[in-house]
Design a protein around this nucleic acid. Structure first.
Lengths: 212, 212
DNA sequence: TTTAGTATTAACCAAATGGTTAAATAATGG
DNA sequence: CCATTATTTAACCATTTGGTTAATACTAAA
């Protein structure tokens, strides 16, 4: 199914990913991709039929990375506190390493969401994009088991969790203006974010009377 | 300062807002704006010098609405529970009425955030875009007063709050795929979201021992 | 009614851009 | 060494699109 990519194809994909992630689907120029890959523009069409096709390929790749790194950070056997902590840690860590990733996806969502929906749907079926649902099941099960409380609707909880993780990386310039901070390096903010997000979410669902 | 707009200008602005919000800055076509306004394309340039200029005008307008409707939902004299509840209610209600709004802003953010930053900065100085900071001050003050706890970093709390409100409207197509729901009308989801978001956030900072 | 400024239009333009093509240049296998 | 196929390139093309312009209609004051 997956045939080995020739070196040219890899060059092109590498360059294309850079440009698409930076400039978005429409902002990206085939010429720029070709230049960065050190290749004639016609080669892009030779290997990948069209811009849309190239973009779709890149989109899958990016989302695949996202999902893979993402999946590592979950361990269904631990208690909710640990699971939540590790998830937030791992997710924010990954986003901090690839801060443009959320925006890349959101940009595509802004185009109507058709591609995102389809690709993610496929990846869910292929068992690649499993984390959000896994998290959902964990929360539901632990609630039923009585380990946590105040989670009538686990979907809502997971949405809040995801939003809490991702929002900063989308709205960063806005947040910088609204809350001007002195020494705003992103690393420090993200570190604080990990801790705060965990506390705000966990303390809400933690069973009263627990002192862990 | 604000001169009354002629009817032509209003027609154009109305159409431009529609098209820009739908298609984004780059996706929007001057011709389409002209058509929807029932006006010759040259008129757009006659009244508003360039596409960028027209866009900037629209962006300010949109953000202004956002801020105005937004500000109504805050009442500094109430207790934190009420403030939080009203804020979430009001904000989500507004977003539900204008679901494309967050994406409109985010799309511009994806372009680098320069415009958003500048405009929001100006609006903050003009006292139009005050809610997030107001919320911040309220949280800090109430924490110091001992009304709530577990809020080491109020900025983080407000970011979580904003993200929790906005995220769904950005990631909606994605969420629909990840968590397929039977009767997914948005109104119901948003209603549930109001309640859940409030609980998750408030229960985390509520003073233990309170039974309100 | 003349005049002077304003509003409006159709036709036009230059630049950008995704995509094509025909010819040239490697590779590859017989 | 030849033929056939795959790769590469420069030049070219059609279309889209923001923007301009010069001529025309409109309006209101003098």
């Amino acid at each position: 199914m997956i045939e080995p990519l020739g070196p040219r194809e890899e060059q092109i994909l590498h360059a294309a990913m850079q440009v698409f992630v930076e400039k978005g689907r429409h902002g990206a120029r085939m010429q720029e991709i070709a230049d960065r890959a050190g290749v004639n523009k016609a080669m892009l069409h030779y290997y990948f039929r069209s811009k849309d096709n190239l973009y779709a390929t890149i989109f899958r790749m990016v989302l695949g990375r996202y999902a893979r790194q993402f999946r590592l950070s979950i361990d269904t056997s631990a208690d909710v506190e640990t699971i939540l902590r590790r998830f937030i840690d791992g997710f924010l860590e990954m986003l901090n390493r690839h801060p443009r990733l959320p925006m890349f996806i959101v940009r595509e969502l802004s185009e109507g969401g058709a591609i995102v929906g389809r690709v993610v749907g496929e990846m869910i079926e292929e068992g690649i994009f499993t984390v959000p649902r896994t998290m959902l099941h964990i929360i539901e099960e632990r609630r039923d088991r009585g380990e946590i409380e105040n989670v009538d609707d686990a979907v809502q909880f997971v949405v809040t969790l995801l939003g809490g993780c991702v929002y900063f990386f989308i709205a960063e310039p806005l947040i910088g203006v609204i809350f001007p901070m002195e020494e705003t390096d992103r690393d420090a903010f993200v570190a604080a974010r990990k801790e705060a997000l965990f506390r705000h979410l966990y303390l809400g669902i933690k069973k009263r009377g627990d002192d862990s």
